[in-house]
């Protein structure tokens, strides 16, 4: 067996290579799109893109934690819609309400939704796909029932609420600012706190996590609750940004979020995933969303293209993994 130092560097190289590769891909893509539509790299459009990506990337960081524990959460689109709807209904009933209170309401609803799913998975021992699939529908149904099937549209919302998405803090758009703050917090959380590392431990090997005294149920509950809370926050941001709350808000958006994570190198089999990867994954995905219409790709093509990108990303991941394993074997001299 040759020196393990080399092994290690091979593995870090691969993950660095992936992130670099994605970055290069992003640059090449922007150049190509820019050639076809000079508006693409305008300040305005970049701003727009960052704002769009902000919501996706906030959700993706929560989803990363869930996937690291070997789970999946399909319910976030519904959680987002439910909390967006409830906070929109509250502000339209009390127009003087401070926007921060509206955000708090949304986050509280999201926290409850996520906490229920977390309990089902940790205490009820449900497979995450079943728990989140079931609650996805329950929350979606609730959204329709609460709103009575009606929309909350722009004129029913006070300006202060709609300003959440358009205002800026320290000269940076609020959405983007919030995303940065959340990323800084989570970077510290997953790398420098015990609980953060325990999330990786649970995903990497649940049995030894149990033996070393980690409270697995608590960790599982925690990641789904965090996911729900972030979805709640995004619900308010979403409704404020589009200035409308509907029953079918963000339907199917969970797939984009999962895709962003997978693109960013979060392993579906659990235990690994990096904050930096998720940023790049969300950026790339957000860019695709923005760039396709700008080069006159029909909106009807977008879904299929996104699907293919996701599939290619997961397959490339799988192939790279296979290659690394084979190379490690080859390096052993017989």
């Amino acid at each position: 067996m040759k020196p393990t130092l080399k092994n290690k560097s091979a593995i870090t190289n691969i993950s660095r290579f992936r992130e670099l590769g994605l970055l290069v891909f992003i640059i090449v893509l922007s150049v190509l799109v820019q050639l076809r539509n000079p508006n693409f790299l305008s300040i305005e459009n970049i701003n727009d893109m960052l704002r769009n990506t902000a919501i996706l990337s906030i959700l993706a960081i929560g989803m990363m934690l869930v996937i690291i524990t070997r789970g999946i959460d399909l319910s976030i689109g519904s959680t987002l819609a439910l909390s967006g709807m409830i906070s929109a209904l509250s502000v339209s009933a009390n127009p003087e309400m401070h926007p921060v209170v509206a955000i708090m309401i949304g986050m509280a609803i999201g926290l409850m939704c996520g906490s229920i799913i977390g309990l089902l998975i940790s205490k009820g021992k449900l497979p995450p796909i079943i728990a989140s699939l079931g609650m996805m529908n329950a929350y979606r149904g609730l959204t329709f029932i609460i709103s009575g099937g009606r929309w909350v549209s722009a004129h029913q919302m006070p300006a202060s609420f709609k300003n959440i998405a358009t205002s800026s803090i320290l000269g940076i758009n609020t959405l983007f600012f919030l995303a940065i703050v959340i990323y800084v917090i989570f970077f510290y959380f997953v790398n420098y706190t015990r609980t953060g590392r325990q999330i990786y431990a649970v995903g990497s090997n649940p049995e030894s996590a149990m033996v070393s005294g980690i409270n697995i149920d608590k960790i599982l509950w925690l990641v789904y609750t965090i996911m729900g809370t972030l979805a709640g926050l995004c619900g308010v941001l979403w409704v404020s940004k589009f200035a409308s709350a509907q029953g079918d808000t963000a339907m199917g958006y969970e797939l984009s979020v999962i895709a962003a994570c997978v693109l960013g190198g979060v392993s579906i089999s659990g235990g690994s995933g990096k904050v930096s990867g998720v940023i790049i994954g969300s950026l790339l995905f957000g860019m695709l969303d923005n760039a396709l219409p700008m080069i006159n790709v029909s909106p009807f093509w977008q879904q299929a293209i996104q699907g293919v990108v996701i599939l290619v990303a997961v397959i490339v991941n799988a192939i790279v993994k296979q290659r690394v394993q084979r190379k490690n074997l080859m390096r052993r001299k017989v």
């Binding site: 015990r194 590392r197 431990a201 995903g203 990497s204 090997n205 049995e207 030894s208 005294g213 235990g271």
Partner: peptide, 23 residues
Amino acid sequence: YQHVTCYPDLTVTENIFMGHEIT
């Protein structure tokens, strides 16, 4: 234990100090 109970995705350091990290 008989079957090594480790975290394959984490570093050696983390495997050693899981549960009693230096903080």
